[in-house]
């Protein structure tokens, strides 16, 4: 699942149409759109650091908890939007350094994946940028009002390797009118690039998800039954799980080993004492 966050609806409109995202009407205090088929959930945060952090936290806390259909490791957070830019910054950028102007703190998203964008640092401030050189704003950089806050709010849920910040320069802070039409035109202009990037992230998530070999249900069931049969304490149960997991990873069929021990009347055990003895035998056979 890709979690997309934009500050304005106008920044999101193009993607909502392209992906056919459906509005989640359960939400009353921010707009949220999703498509299970495309694996995208998009939220409109509103402008500014506090608004962005609040919505990112709300969305993540709601959907990124354990037990959801998608493993959390498969997800990405993408912050997309327009921004101001100093001279020499035009177009669309992937941000490799986020600076929170108020605190001076810097954040570095991992740049693990190939992409076709130029990279640049971005400064996140509390008010719209007026283009006047300020302390903490480098000579060449982008300027927005959300990125650093999105990073900080998203970090507990995603980690720096799973967050990306895509920004389109809309103005130089010199008083150009950033109208709704201009925002729409800019996001449309780079729509194909953005969709391509999101598609790539989705493919990465799918590929990495496939490579993972989570403990299978049958391993769990075998372990639970064995815990009962061996009269396991908590510590013994943990140790037993490690043996079953190792056996599975090293290509040993622990179910048949256990099955044979049942045939030989080792299992089930009468009491804890017998369980301990039997566990020693099981350990020997599983290694």
């Amino acid at each position: 699942m890709i979690y997309l966050f934009t500050a304005l609806y106008k920044e999101a409109g193009g993607l909502i149409r392209r992906f056919g995202l459906v509005k989640n009407t359960e939400n009353t205090w921010f707009q949220e759109f999703y498509s299970a088929e495309c694996g995208i959930r998009l939220a409109v945060t509103g402008v500014g650091e506090i608004a962005a952090a609040a919505v990112v936290s709300a969305v993540c806390a709601r959907y990124r908890t354990a037990g959801r259909a998608h493993a959390p490791e498969d997800d990405f957070l993408v912050n997309l939007g327009i921004c101001g830019g100093t001279a020499g910054t035009e177009g669309i950028f992937l941000c490799n350094k986020l600076t929170e102007q108020a605190s001076g703190k810097t954040f570095y998203p991992d740049m693990l994946y190939r992409h076709n964008f130029r990279e640049c640092g971005i400064v996140t401030g509390m008010r719209p940028w007026d283009g006047v050189p300020e302390e903490g704003v480098p000579e060449r950089c982008l300027y927005d009002m959300e990125a650093a806050a999105v990073y900080q709010a998203g970090l507990p849920f995603f980690g720096p390797h799973r967050m990306a910040f895509l920004k389109i320069v809309s103005d130089s802070g010199a008083g150009e009118a950033v109208t709704a039409d201009r925002v729409i035109a800019l996001t449309e202009k780079y729509g194909d690039d953005i969709v391509g990037f999101l598609g790539r992230l989705a493919a990465i998530a799918e590929s990495e998800g496939r490579e993972r070999k989570p403990a299978e249900l049958k391993e769990r069931l075998l372990w639970e039954r064995l815990c009962r049969e061996l009269h396991c304490s908590q510590a013994m149960g943990r140790s037993l799980w490690q043996y079953i997991r190792y056996a599975s990873l090293s290509g040993k069929d622990s179910a048949s080993v256990v099955g044979k021990m049942r045939e030989e009347n080792y299992l089930p055990c009468r009491d804890k004492r017998e369980g301990k003895k039997c566990f020693e035998e099981l350990k020997r056979r599983l290694l």
């Binding site: 740049m111 507990p156 720096p160 799973r162």
Partner: peptide
């Protein structure tokens, strides 16, 4: 891509890093 930083720990000691993923790049 060369990026200037204040201290190596700003990058090396970030919270929530994934060692396995980072090793691939």
């Amino acid at each position: 891509t060369i990026m200037e930083i204040d201290h190596y720990k700003d990058v090396f000691c970030r919270r929530g890093q994934d060692y396995k993923a980072q090793h691939l790049a």
